[in-house]
Simulated scan of single mutants.
Amino acid sequence: MLRALRDELGSRLGAAAANAWDRTVAGGVADLRRMPRTEVARDPGGTLYRYDPLPGVAPSGPAVVLVPPLGAPDFAYDLRRDCSLVEHLLDEGRPVYLVDYGRIAFGHRRLGIEHWVDDVVPRTVRRVAGLTDGPVYLVGWSLGGLFCLLALAAAEEAGEPLPVRAVAAIGSPVDVTAVPLVAPLRPLAEVAGGRAVSALYRAVGSWPAPLVSTVFQLTTVDKMVTRPLAILSRLDDRDTLAQIEAVDHMMASMHGYPGRVFGQLFHLFLRSNDLAGGSLQLAGREVSLSSVKVPVLAVGGRDDVIAPLRAVRRAVPLLTGAPEVRFATAPGGHLGVLTGRRARTTTWPALDAFLSEH
């Protein structure tokens, strides 16, 4: 037994030494190569990409269209090799497409949520459906999931349904009062009113990327404090170190928000929490979640402080027009529920099963 323990300790020390060398000298332990993809179309709303099939895996069936949120880079879906939702979907033999909005600049300051709901998502869906000769699956994370649901509802209400088989919204909060970080700010927002905030975002033009990154990191401040200890204690665990490194890289690549979107999030979500009532006022008309007519999967992270379970679950009773609404939970925070190490055995299989059934 002592020999076995000695051998295990030696193996762990050797792995720790190799990992420490790679982290500090060799450039890192995470394989951050992106899955190969081909540009399909480019317009002012963004660039549409098709991911190349994996060698030996012939794609078949309906295409999956990935819709990113604002703020996060598009490679959130392709975080690192062996922990990439894109890679997983390709390995399942699914055709995978993604729309990339690019970086938000001052010139985008007048774009509102309706830009993605009425223009970007519908155009992307119809383009991919035309390329693949059939309805698609929509998958959105965080605000991207809300874009998907609202786009489907708006298209139905306009009498122009989108060619979508089913939609999955992962970590997409509907009820802001259930978000611990936001709830205490709502009374302050009411007292302050909207004029000062409106003047601020109109003057600044956008919510800058460094601030978006900082806010995202503050949601995991406890992990930031214990991070050095976590790295030292898991120095022999290459997979954990690779995940930490990949998340750090993503945090350094965050995008900004257009000023108008920031204003809408403040007024419609923070102050009035409209979507929790089932609808949102966009471009002079009301868009109701009850107008969604396709099966919906909503996934919440058990440790998510940006989109807690109650905030995500609120969508279930509001989607009254959907033939099926499935709610699932998975371990992890806001990013972890999408592409954390445990998502490989929780969120992804749940998504696979849902798509296969529809």
Rank of each mutant, 00 (worst) to 15 (best):
R3F: 13
A4Q: 13
A4V: 15
L5A: 12
L5K: 09
R6W: 10
L9E: 12
L9I: 11
L13W: 13
A17W: 12
N19G: 00
D22E: 15
R23D: 05
T24E: 08
A26P: 08
G27I: 04
L32R: 00
R34S: 13
R37M: 09
R37N: 05
A41L: 13
D43L: 08
T47C: 08
S60G: 15
A72V: 08
F75Q: 12
F75C: 11
Y77C: 03
Y77W: 06
L79H: 03
D82Y: 09
L90E: 00
R94N: 04
P95G: 04
P95N: 05
V96M: 02
Y97T: 06
L98G: 00
H108Y: 03
R110V: 12
L111Y: 07
I113H: 01
H115C: 15
D118A: 14
D119T: 11
V121N: 00
P122I: 03
D133Q: 15
G134T: 04
P135E: 09
P135M: 05
L138V: 01
V139M: 05
V139E: 07
V139W: 00
S142F: 00
S142V: 02
G145N: 01
F147H: 08
C148K: 04
C148N: 08
L152P: 00
A158I: 12
G159L: 08
L162V: 01
P163Q: 06
P163H: 04
I170P: 01
L185V: 06
R186L: 09
A189N: 10
V191H: 09
G193V: 04
S198C: 14
P208E: 04
P210L: 03
T214R: 14
Q217H: 15
L218G: 14
T220F: 14
V225K: 11
T226R: 12
R227T: 09
I231Q: 04
L235E: 03
A242P: 00
A242C: 03
Q243P: 14
E245G: 02
S253C: 10
H255M: 15
G256R: 01
Y257S: 07
Y257V: 10
R260L: 07
Q264R: 06
L268H: 11
L270D: 05
S272N: 11
S272T: 11
S272V: 12
L275W: 01
A276E: 05
S279V: 09
Q281Y: 11
R285W: 03
E286T: 11
S290F: 03
K293V: 10
P295R: 00
L297I: 04
V299C: 01
V299K: 00
R302A: 10
V305M: 10
R310E: 10
R313Q: 12
R314E: 04
R314Y: 08
V316G: 02
T320A: 06
V325R: 00
R326E: 09
R326T: 12
P331T: 05
G332T: 06
G332K: 02
G340E: 01
R341D: 11
R342W: 10
R342T: 12
A343K: 07
R344A: 15
P349M: 07
P349K: 05
A350V: 13
L355H: 03
S356E: 14
